Computed example of a mutant assay.
Amino acid sequence: MSLHPETLVPSHFLWDFGDGVATITLNRPERKNPLTFDSYAELRDLFRALKETPEVRVVVLTGAGGNFSSGGDVHEIIGPLTRMDVLGLREFTTMTGDLVQAMRDCPQPIVAAVEGVCAGAGAILAMASDLRLAAPDAKTAFLFTRVGLSGADMGACAILPRIIGHGRAAELLFTGRNMSAEEGERWGFFSRIANDVRAEAQALARSLADGPVQAHYITKQQLDAEWAVSIDTALGMEAEVQAECMTTKDFHRAYEAFADKRKPEFKGD
């Protein structure tokens, strides 16, 4: 799938692109932006395509109508799942995991702007983003156990403990309770709380898009790649990628700008 950001017309969400920042808005506000089989697949395909879309430097992910996402649609996903055979169920759970994998594999930093309800698969989308900002009313719940499912969904048992710690992740995944915005900020799930969280997310994305793009891509790549390696191995990996980053024109421009006491201009090359 090739992506032309200026002309993309998605079927299941809103898309806006300008000056390097793409904004994905989950858009079923009357139902608090639930996901369906088709919207899962379209989001997966979009994040896969972003690997080949250098025009997009940063992605903002949000929801319409004052909520982020209520997760899998009860009638369009949960009901049909109860009637599927094991093969069909595995195809679905593999697809949802592929969406998280695509979010982690796309090089662009993803900024989640979370308002209101952020539950189930919606909480996973926020978790799989690189940076998360919250509105004061944000309520995040990994509520899988409340519908008889395990907390081991879409990478939650791997990723969530790395963000907030094992014990806190275990509590949320066992109980399915809401995590408030204040609690999420205190635990490190959210980096900040903002009254106008969408504007704050756009400002953050804009600052990242104006920065050294290749350096940001390497940072995202290494944050994932170094999860499960020793410090010795990580040091070697970072030596390689940082030396590569030092060959970019952005690095040389930054040196010249600092030497001339002016602000560097990054062009992503």
Rank of each mutant, 00 (worst) to 15 (best):
P80K: 12
P161E: 03
A41Q: 11
E244Q: 14
E226D: 13
A205G: 15
F47M: 09
T233M: 06
R90P: 00
R132E: 07
V59W: 04
D232E: 15
E244K: 10
E226L: 15
S70M: 10
P80I: 08
F142A: 03
V58F: 01
I163M: 03
R206Q: 15
N27Y: 03
A225P: 11
A239H: 11
V100R: 02
C245V: 14
E115L: 09
F68M: 09
F266E: 06
L61T: 11
P212Y: 08
A170Q: 10
A138H: 12
I77C: 11
D224K: 14
P107K: 08
L204W: 04
Y217L: 01
A113R: 03
F17W: 06
L143F: 12
F17N: 05
V9K: 13
A181V: 02
A158Q: 05
S180I: 07
P136V: 10
T23F: 03
I24F: 00
V229T: 15
A194Y: 09
G72N: 14
D45E: 04
A128K: 05
Q108F: 00
M84Q: 11
E226A: 14
A123K: 02
E182T: 05
R104A: 11
E244N: 09
A169M: 00
E42K: 10
D16T: 10
G97T: 08
L204K: 01
P5A: 01
S150I: 02
G151P: 01
V21H: 01
A194D: 11
G155Q: 07
E76S: 14
V60F: 00
V9I: 05
D137V: 04
G211C: 13
G20M: 00
A41K: 11
